[in-house]
Protein backbone atom coordinates (compact mmCIF):
# COMPACT_ATOMS: atom_id res chain seq x y z
CA UNK A 1 0.00 0.00 0.00
CA UNK A 2 2.85 2.35 0.63
CA UNK A 3 4.15 2.20 -2.93
CA UNK A 4 1.53 4.57 -4.40
CA UNK A 5 2.13 6.94 -1.49
CA UNK A 6 5.83 7.00 -2.25
CA UNK A 7 5.14 7.46 -5.93
CA UNK A 8 2.86 10.37 -5.17
CA UNK A 9 5.36 11.90 -2.79
CA UNK A 10 8.17 11.58 -5.29
CA UNK A 11 5.98 13.04 -8.00
CA UNK A 12 5.07 15.93 -5.76
CA UNK A 13 8.66 16.48 -4.76
CA UNK A 14 9.81 16.50 -8.36
CA UNK A 15 6.89 18.73 -9.22
CA UNK A 16 7.84 21.16 -6.49
CA UNK A 17 11.45 21.18 -7.56
CA UNK A 18 10.55 21.68 -11.19
CA UNK A 19 7.81 24.12 -10.34
CA UNK A 20 9.90 27.24 -10.08
CA UNK A 21 12.22 26.35 -12.92
CA UNK A 22 12.06 28.58 -16.00
CA UNK A 23 10.98 26.12 -18.66
CA UNK A 24 11.47 26.29 -22.37
CA UNK A 25 8.09 24.59 -22.48
CA UNK A 26 6.65 27.73 -20.99
CA UNK A 27 7.94 29.74 -23.93
CA UNK A 28 5.14 31.56 -25.63
CA UNK A 29 3.53 29.52 -28.40
CA UNK A 30 3.96 32.45 -30.78
CA UNK A 31 7.69 32.63 -30.02
CA UNK A 32 8.01 28.90 -30.61
CA UNK A 33 6.22 29.21 -33.94
CA UNK A 34 8.51 32.02 -34.99
CA UNK A 35 11.61 30.08 -33.95
CA UNK A 36 10.55 26.94 -35.79
CA UNK A 37 9.52 28.81 -38.94
CA UNK A 38 12.92 30.51 -38.87
CA UNK A 39 14.57 27.08 -38.62
CA UNK A 40 12.57 25.89 -41.65
CA UNK A 41 13.43 29.11 -43.49
CA UNK A 42 17.15 28.61 -42.92
CA UNK A 43 16.95 24.96 -43.94
CA UNK A 44 15.19 25.87 -47.19
CA UNK A 45 17.70 28.66 -47.77
CA UNK A 46 20.57 26.21 -47.43
CA UNK A 47 18.79 23.82 -49.77
CA UNK A 48 17.96 26.67 -52.19
CA UNK A 49 14.28 25.76 -52.13
CA UNK A 50 13.01 29.22 -52.98
CA UNK A 51 9.24 28.62 -53.16
CA UNK A 52 9.30 27.01 -49.70
CA UNK A 53 11.54 29.80 -48.46
CA UNK A 54 9.15 32.48 -49.69
CA UNK A 55 6.24 30.63 -48.08
CA UNK A 56 8.09 30.64 -44.76
CA UNK A 57 8.83 34.35 -45.14
CA UNK A 58 5.15 34.98 -45.82
CA UNK A 59 4.18 33.09 -42.66
CA UNK A 60 6.84 34.80 -40.57
CA UNK A 61 5.81 38.24 -41.78
CA UNK A 62 2.23 37.46 -40.74
CA UNK A 63 3.48 36.39 -37.33
CA UNK A 64 5.74 39.45 -36.98
CA UNK A 65 4.15 42.20 -39.05
CA UNK A 66 6.27 44.88 -37.39
CA UNK A 67 9.64 43.22 -37.91
CA UNK A 68 11.24 45.62 -40.39
CA UNK A 69 14.37 43.52 -40.89
CA UNK A 70 12.31 40.44 -41.71
CA UNK A 71 10.24 42.39 -44.23
CA UNK A 72 13.44 43.73 -45.76
CA UNK A 73 14.89 40.22 -46.05
CA UNK A 74 11.64 38.96 -47.54
CA UNK A 75 11.83 41.79 -50.07
CA UNK A 76 15.44 40.98 -50.90
CA UNK A 77 14.55 37.33 -51.53
CA UNK A 78 11.64 38.32 -53.76
CA UNK A 79 13.92 40.73 -55.62
CA UNK A 80 16.50 38.02 -56.26
CA UNK A 81 13.72 35.84 -57.59
CA UNK A 82 12.81 38.55 -60.10
CA UNK A 83 9.56 39.44 -58.33
CA UNK A 84 10.51 43.11 -58.20
CA UNK A 85 7.10 44.66 -57.68
CA UNK A 86 6.39 42.40 -54.70
CA UNK A 87 9.87 43.17 -53.40
CA UNK A 88 9.16 46.91 -53.58
CA UNK A 89 6.00 46.40 -51.51
CA UNK A 90 7.96 44.62 -48.77
CA UNK A 91 10.84 47.12 -48.90
CA UNK A 92 8.37 49.99 -48.54
CA UNK A 93 6.76 48.33 -45.53
CA UNK A 94 10.20 47.93 -43.93
CA UNK A 95 11.10 51.54 -44.72
CA UNK A 96 7.82 52.77 -43.28
CA UNK A 97 8.43 50.86 -40.06
CA UNK A 98 12.00 52.09 -39.73
CA UNK A 99 12.55 55.28 -41.73
CA UNK A 100 15.92 55.83 -40.07
CA UNK A 101 17.46 52.79 -41.72
CA UNK A 102 19.00 54.01 -45.00
CA UNK A 103 19.27 50.49 -46.39
CA UNK A 104 15.53 50.05 -46.55
CA UNK A 105 15.04 53.25 -48.53
CA UNK A 106 18.11 52.41 -50.62
CA UNK A 107 16.61 49.02 -51.45
CA UNK A 108 13.39 50.72 -52.56
CA UNK A 109 15.52 52.96 -54.79
CA UNK A 110 17.42 50.01 -56.30
CA UNK A 111 14.23 48.10 -57.03
CA UNK A 112 12.53 51.13 -58.57
CA UNK A 113 15.59 51.79 -60.71
CA UNK A 114 15.43 48.16 -61.87
CA UNK A 115 11.92 48.70 -63.22
CA UNK A 116 13.05 52.01 -64.74
CA UNK A 117 11.03 54.18 -62.38
CA UNK A 118 13.90 56.64 -62.16
CA UNK A 119 11.99 59.47 -60.54
CA UNK A 120 10.78 57.12 -57.85
CA UNK A 121 14.32 55.80 -57.40
CA UNK A 122 15.70 59.34 -57.05
CA UNK A 123 13.08 60.15 -54.41
CA UNK A 124 13.94 56.97 -52.49
CA UNK A 125 17.71 57.57 -52.67
CA UNK A 126 17.16 61.12 -51.44
CA UNK A 127 15.31 59.75 -48.41
CA UNK A 128 18.07 57.17 -47.89
CA UNK A 129 20.58 59.91 -47.12
CA UNK A 130 24.31 60.39 -47.61
CA UNK A 131 25.22 56.69 -47.84
CA UNK A 132 23.24 56.46 -51.06
CA UNK A 133 24.46 59.82 -52.41
CA UNK A 134 26.78 58.19 -55.00
CA UNK A 135 23.88 56.14 -56.36
CA UNK A 136 21.68 59.23 -56.35
CA UNK A 137 24.38 61.13 -58.30
CA UNK A 138 24.79 58.26 -60.67
CA UNK A 139 21.10 57.85 -61.40
CA UNK A 140 20.59 61.60 -61.72
CA UNK A 141 23.49 61.69 -64.17
CA UNK A 142 21.95 58.82 -66.06
CA UNK A 143 18.54 60.51 -66.15
CA UNK A 144 20.20 63.70 -67.35
CA UNK A 145 22.04 61.81 -70.09
CA UNK A 146 18.84 60.13 -71.20
CA UNK A 147 17.11 63.50 -71.30
CA UNK A 148 19.99 64.97 -73.35
CA UNK A 149 19.85 62.05 -75.77
CA UNK A 150 16.10 62.45 -76.10
CA UNK A 151 16.58 66.19 -76.66
CA UNK A 152 19.27 65.49 -79.25
CA UNK A 153 17.09 62.96 -81.04
CA UNK A 154 14.22 65.43 -81.08
CA UNK A 155 16.51 68.11 -82.54
CA UNK A 156 17.77 65.71 -85.21
CA UNK A 157 14.22 64.81 -86.12
CA UNK A 158 13.18 68.48 -86.27
CA UNK A 159 16.08 69.30 -88.60
CA UNK A 160 15.32 66.35 -90.83
CA UNK A 161 11.72 67.59 -91.13
CA UNK A 162 12.97 71.11 -92.00
CA UNK A 163 15.35 69.75 -94.70
CA UNK A 164 12.53 67.75 -96.23
Amino acid sequence: MSVPVKTLALSMALGLLFGSMPAVGAMDALEKKKAWHKCLLEIYRSQQKFPEMLAEYGTLCKLSPNDAQLLFQYGATLYRQGRTNEAITQYRKAAALNPQNPDYQGAVGDALAAIKDYQGAIAAYRKAGPRYAPRLQSIMQYVQNVQQIEQYNKEVKRRQMEDE
Binding site: A9, L17, S20
Partner: peptide, 26 residues
Amino acid sequence: FVGLINLPAAQAQPSVTMMNHVKDAQ
Protein backbone atom coordinates in the same frame (compact mmCIF):
# COMPACT_ATOMS: atom_id res chain seq x y z
CA PHE B 1 9.82 15.28 2.19
CA VAL B 2 10.44 12.86 -0.66
CA GLY B 3 8.30 10.21 0.94
CA LEU B 4 11.03 7.66 1.42
CA ILE B 5 11.09 7.60 5.18
CA ASN B 6 9.77 4.06 5.28
CA LEU B 7 12.53 2.66 3.12
CA PRO B 8 15.70 1.08 4.33
CA ALA B 9 18.38 3.72 4.01
CA ALA B 10 20.55 1.73 1.64
CA GLN B 11 17.68 1.54 -0.78
CA ALA B 12 16.37 5.06 -0.24
CA GLN B 13 19.76 6.69 -0.67
CA PRO B 14 19.84 6.72 -4.50
CA SER B 15 16.53 8.60 -4.68
CA VAL B 16 17.72 11.12 -2.12
CA THR B 17 20.88 11.55 -4.14
CA MET B 18 18.79 12.06 -7.23
CA MET B 19 16.65 14.66 -5.50
CA ASN B 20 19.78 16.47 -4.34
CA HIS B 21 21.04 16.59 -7.91
CA VAL B 22 17.65 17.88 -9.07
CA LYS B 23 17.75 20.51 -6.35
CA ASP B 24 21.25 21.54 -7.46
CA ALA B 25 19.97 21.71 -11.02
CA GLN B 26 17.03 23.85 -9.99
